Computed example of a mutant assay.
Amino acid sequence: MQLKLTKCHGSGNDFFIIDEITNDYRFSEMERAELAKALCNRETDLGADGILYILKSDHADGRMRVFNEDGSEASMCGNGLRCVARYVCELLGKESALIETMKADLEVKREKDIYPDIPTYLVEISPVSFQLKDLPLNFEQDTLINEKIPNLSEKLTFTALAVPNPHLISIVQSKEIHSDTQKHLSEYVNGPNEFFPDGVNVSFVKSLDKGHIYVRTFERGVGFTNACGTAMSASSLVTCLQGINDLENAIQVHNNGGKVCCVVHKNKDQYKIDLIGNATYVYQTEVTLDLKDPQSFKIGEKDLYLAEEKQYANLQAEVQAFLSQYL
């Protein structure tokens, strides 16, 4: 079959978009997973962190399904949602849309450029839960907010939350950022372990200045990525809970892939987060493959979005210069 792909990224977290709204594609669940393994393999001429399948919805403007490079399905992906937001809004000629995801219907809209000539979208990150059963985390209490987990770390404290995918977040100093602590800890909780039967995204967060944080994330099913949208959103919320930043105020979240802006809202006991950042296209191409053997694909010519990539490289350079003052 001939398969059209759009390579895109949010904060350097890169994906392939497969459009099932305008194309007559039909995939089984196994085929979706195997396609992700094949096309996201970075040892090939493609490679990405995951695939964003955009489907028709019976009540929203579009439906998003996210498959990681290991073939597992994620319940949510903030960086991917921004890319889907752009694709659906441009496809329908709209400035805002409603996107159906696994756990919730989320509002998205075009936003003022986060950097000159960089397409920018605001996406809603919700629902938020601190109930450990929603991650799940096997621990003898209902919630874990800025507390230690015995046998996991003697020094670090953690906050666990689902947004709705699971996150374990620790506020750290530069020495932890530059150590192997996060790598070893993340590999443990994403392998056979007593705490997280389904694994968990692990983020280390460094406060840089009021309204500025740095987030590095080990993503479940992927490993270390340039950025994770839900992790940056969850991390922003955690810094508000600890008094580092304030609700309703913009938080500049810096990462290895660039930066985003987050605003945390609270209504009674419910939180939601605005995640604002780039939705950059890298190239479009077609691949020829057999769904019975997706590893043996052939790639057509790549139609590059050079101007978009150049502008994003400029943003990245500014972010790295800023981070060099703090990390």
Results as ranks from 00 to 15, higher is better:
E100Y: 02
N278S: 13
F15E: 05
G12V: 06
V253H: 07
Q325C: 07
I18S: 06
N201C: 05
D105N: 12
F27L: 11
E308H: 11
D45I: 12
L98N: 04
E73K: 08
L237A: 00
Q173I: 10
I251T: 03
L304Q: 13
S11A: 15
E29I: 08
N245M: 00
G71V: 10
G211F: 13
L237I: 01
K183L: 15
A307R: 14
E187C: 10
N256W: 03
T181F: 08
N13R: 07
H265V: 01
P197Q: 09
L52S: 06
V238T: 00
G50P: 05
S324K: 14
V215D: 03
A85D: 13
C83M: 08
T143Q: 07
G258H: 03
D180V: 08
A250W: 00
K37S: 10
Q141N: 08
A321R: 12
G258P: 02
I118V: 15
A38F: 13
A85V: 14
K4C: 09
T239E: 11
L55P: 01
P164S: 07
C261T: 12
S72N: 04
A321I: 08
A33D: 07
T181A: 14
C262L: 04
F218D: 00
C228V: 10
K56F: 04
L156R: 06
T288I: 13
D290H: 12
G10W: 03
D303Y: 12
D134S: 15
Y53P: 02
F130W: 10
Y87S: 02
D45C: 11
A321T: 13
H212R: 15
P150W: 09
Q2C: 02
S186D: 07
N201S: 05
A227E: 02
E95T: 11
P294R: 09
R86G: 05
R26S: 15
S57R: 05
T225Q: 09
S153E: 06
D113Q: 14
Q141T: 11
L241I: 02
K206P: 03
D269N: 07
N151I: 02
S207G: 09
L35A: 10
Q242C: 03
M1L: 14
L275G: 02
V66S: 04
S186H: 09
Y121T: 01
L247N: 00
N267C: 01
L168C: 08
R65M: 08
A234C: 09
F195P: 02
Q295P: 05
D274G: 05
Y214R: 10
D274P: 04
A104P: 00
V260N: 09
E111I: 01
A317F: 11
S203E: 01
G257K: 02
D117M: 13
E308R: 04
N13G: 10
S324W: 02
G10D: 05
Q295C: 13
E140V: 14
H167Y: 11
I169F: 00
S236P: 03
